[in-house]
Amino acid sequence: MDLRRRGDYGRARLAIDRALLTAEDVGHEFLIASVNATLTVQLMMQGDSEDGVALASDTIDMLRRYRGAADDPISYSVINGALNLYAAQAAARAGDAAEAAALLKVAAGTAAESGVDRERYCLIFGPTNMSIQKIGMYVDSRRPHDATREAARVNADQAGSVSRGCYHHLHLARAYGMLGNDDAVLDALMAARSIAPGFVRHDPLARDQVRDLIRHRRSPDERLRSLAKYMAVLD
């Protein structure tokens, strides 16, 4: 995940492939499904969104046939919900709005049934995570008003994840950027940095936003200057 955040997709894919080989050697379907969920995100970020949807769908079918799922319904809920959510994101990026909506509906239903956010096999899923990811999808679809409305209903701390809390604010920063609210963009970026500085420093979209803020402001204030220096986008 750290390699992917840094844009090193080659080594990130190598790490995922090795993890998948290990999961297959162990022969545990939940482990395989978890790695495939990560690979779905990787494919989406590389621009292979249709392949991501296909992989997630195949993995969901595998889970449905897995007899051990009945013995571990919480893990099944988390992984099945995450896979449907990632598939929805990939479908949205592939331009298939109808498929994205259908997958998102299934994921939302699973999140509502779970009631709380849980982590299983390095995957986090639940109502709060669902909303945070939905905000990101709204932003990807250039629907900033929907993104900010959804964000107003979310307490990101309930996700129980540093990365989700950070990306909640990064999604908001992008939404405010679309709305032309530079002050809110900076507030959101600073909030994200306070939660997970390393994530923000290497996030390419956040770096682009900081560059845009510097271009918009003839005299960057101390907060913006400090953030830009930290992210190495200002000499």
Rank of each mutant, 00 (worst) to 15 (best):
G115H: 11
Y86P: 06
A87E: 14
A82V: 11
A90D: 04
A152M: 12
A112R: 15
T40A: 09
R67K: 14
H168L: 01
A102P: 12
E113G: 02
D235F: 08
Y167R: 07
I79S: 12
P127Q: 05
A70Q: 15
F30H: 10
A88P: 13
S49Q: 12
S194H: 12
A232L: 09
A107W: 13
Y9T: 01
K134E: 01
A206G: 10
M130D: 08
N80T: 11
V78Y: 07
L83N: 09
S163Y: 02
C122W: 14
S163G: 00
A33F: 13
T110V: 15
D25M: 04
P144W: 01
D2N: 03
M1N: 03
H28S: 05
V139F: 02
A206F: 12
A97D: 14
P73D: 11
A175Q: 03
S161C: 06
L172H: 02
V53N: 10
D51G: 08
A191F: 10
Q209I: 02
R201E: 01
D96S: 12
A173L: 12
R13G: 14
A92E: 08
R65T: 04
D58Q: 13
A175N: 06
E24M: 14
H171S: 13
Y121F: 15
A82L: 10
S34P: 06
A56V: 06
A90G: 06
R93V: 02
G180Y: 08
R65H: 07
A101M: 09
P73A: 08
A70F: 15
Q42A: 11
D2C: 00
D157C: 04
Q42W: 13
A15K: 08
V162H: 07
L43P: 11
Q89F: 10
R201S: 00
T59F: 05
V116I: 07
I74D: 12
G52Q: 10
L31T: 03
H145A: 07
D117P: 04
I135N: 09
S131A: 13
Y176E: 10
S34C: 06
A12I: 06
S49N: 13
A108N: 13
E119W: 05
L186V: 04
G7F: 09
I195N: 03
Y230K: 04
Q42P: 01
M1C: 02
A147W: 07
R218Y: 12
R164E: 10
V78C: 03
A19K: 05
R225E: 12
S219E: 12
Q89W: 11
Q133N: 10
E150L: 11
P220R: 03
Y176F: 15
R143C: 01
L189F: 08
H145W: 03
N155K: 14
M130Q: 15
Y138D: 00
T38P: 00
V200R: 06
A228K: 05
Y167C: 02
R142I: 00
R193A: 11
E50P: 04
L21Q: 09
S34T: 09
C122S: 15
T110Q: 13
S226Q: 15
A147V: 05
Y76N: 00
C122V: 12
